[in-house]
Design a protein around this nucleic acid. Structure first.
Lengths: 211, 211
DNA sequence: TGTACATCAGTGAACGCGCGTTCACTGATGTAC
DNA sequence: TGTACATCAGTGAACGCGCGTTCACTGATGTAC
């Protein structure tokens, strides 16, 4: 029998050390410059303590690296939020989601700043991916609302739009949350209030399947 | 009597042609790249059809140019909104403000895209200035609400925060408005709905001076 | 009215530097047999 | 068990290029007197 096997370096788990260093260096720099596109490949390699050429071993260009960061971190976030929803008790879905999102932001400050900056950044592919991610989070929230709260008579389509706008707002506020250390509690509680405002106001204006 | 006079070129009205060309070229390029910092001075001069050195005649660096754009356009916008509020009939303040903002965006698409991108951009001074601008617009809205709508018992401080978050949301959505030509009506009407949701939900959650 | 002078937008050549990219190399690790 | 081979991360030197910046210049316009 022929034992088929991938080259070891491709087997999940043992990622090349340099690749990780490059990703982390890029995140650090992109958070400062608010852009991946503005980073130089030599600059990133320097920050990572590696030879400029090592960059080419792992990425075609800076956009590829940015996409890697977006998919990795996006995956982590939506996994986190899924777990939260599974464990959160009814009617505090909003508070739990906001808390989880901002805890995630506090744990990954530079990556979150770098990615939120890319929401309206220079790479269309990255922008599109992040919007998909936000759509996913919005759907997650909608499911939570439908499941735990009393059905408020908003059409699914309107509810998703509402949730998407809310997620957009929460993501943007997460930058303030990260950067303004001394106002984190205030910002988080305002985010929770805003969430409630969205759904209370939404029920009034979109409710009973008016829209 | 000694006739004091400024050098003519400084007298308001006759701005150097090259300066305007540079500003317009920079706006065009910054809208594409979503960043002023990412622009090269030679790149801007080339786009303007001028010698690279001409840049130095008018600006110290790219940040100075970005600040010029921010103050100019910010001034125009708040003037426009002030006029709107003066002329708008009661209770349609939200719709009128949104309509005016998005008409402004449609008239200055590249400048608006470039500046909204700077909301979380690389230049702290520009960021701060744009936040001040948004605060001004928020105050304008608050005045409109206090003046035209029935007092809803929200504390001034909370109302301002609410209006600020709304303005943030509207500004960010203005990019979608500009870029998605075929969905402009839909986006604008969603923006109006969101405005109502903010104040209706706000009245519920912050109303009667609870918060 | 005419002339000399100051101001200032815009030009053109030149500089040193860091950039992205290419090429040929090393050295470690794992696999075939 | 040992040996030959393949794979792949990382290195180092070298390239041509566009960049920001400096300097000395031109030419138009307006002012002093």
């Amino acid at each position: 029998m022929v034992t088929e096997s991938l080259p070891t370096a491709v087997v999940s788990g043992d990622e090349a050390a340099g690749r990780r260093s490059l990703i982390q260096a890029a995140i650090r720099l992109a958070a400062r410059k608010r852009s991946f596109k503005a980073l130089g490949l030599r600059e990133v390699a320097r920050e990572a303590g590696l030879n400029p050429n090592t960059f080419y071993r792992h990425f075609d260009d800076m956009e590829a690296l940015a996409m890697t960061v977006a998919t990795e971190l996006g995956g982590q976030l939506s996994q986190t939020l899924k777990a939260i929803r599974a464990n959160s008790t009814r009617s505090e879905a909003a508070r739990a989601t906001v808390a989880a999102t901002y805890r995630f932001a506090a744990d990954n400050p530079e990556a979150v700043i770098a990615l939120v900056s890319e929401l309206n950044g220079a790479y269309p592919r990255v922008r599109a991916h992040l919007r998909m991610l936000m759509q996913g989070v919005a759907r997650e929230i909608v499911d939570g609302v439908r499941e735990y709260a009393s059905d408020n008579g908003i059409r699914d389509e309107s509810l998703l739009k509402l949730a998407y706008s809310l997620v957009e707002q929460l993501f943007i506020m997460s930058i303030d949350y990260i950067e303004q250390n001394n106002r984190r509690d205030e910002i988080e509680s305002w985010a929770v209030t805003l969430s409630k405002i969205y759904f209370a106001g939404g029920a009034l204006l979109l409710g009973s399947r008016k829209n």
